[in-house]
Amino acid sequence: MALSANGRGNGASATVAQRLQKELMDIMTKPTPGITAFPDDENMTVWTATITGPDETPYENLVFKLSMEFAPNYPYSPPTVLYKTPIYHPNVDFSGRICLDVLKDKWSAIYNITTVLLSLQSLLGEPNNSSPLNGQAAELWDKDPVEYKRLVLARHKEPEDLDA
């Protein structure tokens, strides 16, 4: 126990900062269209990200804000990701929590912020309706695309309106 506690302490968090630093460099030098991510002013382990809804989905042209929090043992544990923008989606609950396997037990240390955001973006267009957090949305997705789209737009808020 003592051994691992030491390992997790100073050494580990230094690595988190290092790794996040590296990812930030990567994101700034090679930006991916449709996603942005930037760390908090004071805290390198808390980031704010945005994703743009993919074309030809109910989320087209909508921008969603997310928060990402990195544990001291990142990348050996997934970041905690929440939707800050209210979103109507089968795999997101009303407080913004996301059900996505790569953010849970299928997390791999080879993933990074960009791959997480890209997975979330593709989840918008391809929800996993077999294990929904929002049952109504899962049902409407196939049954009534028009009503679905209406509910998506009704729930959505522009990022600028959020901070107010």
Binding site: L3, S4, G7, R8, G11, N73, Y76, A109
Partner: peptide
């Protein structure tokens, strides 16, 4: 191998 960080990196 008893350093959590080094150990996890090598395992990964």
């Amino acid at each position: 191998f008893n350093d959590m960080n080094a150990s996890m990196a090598i395992i990964t």
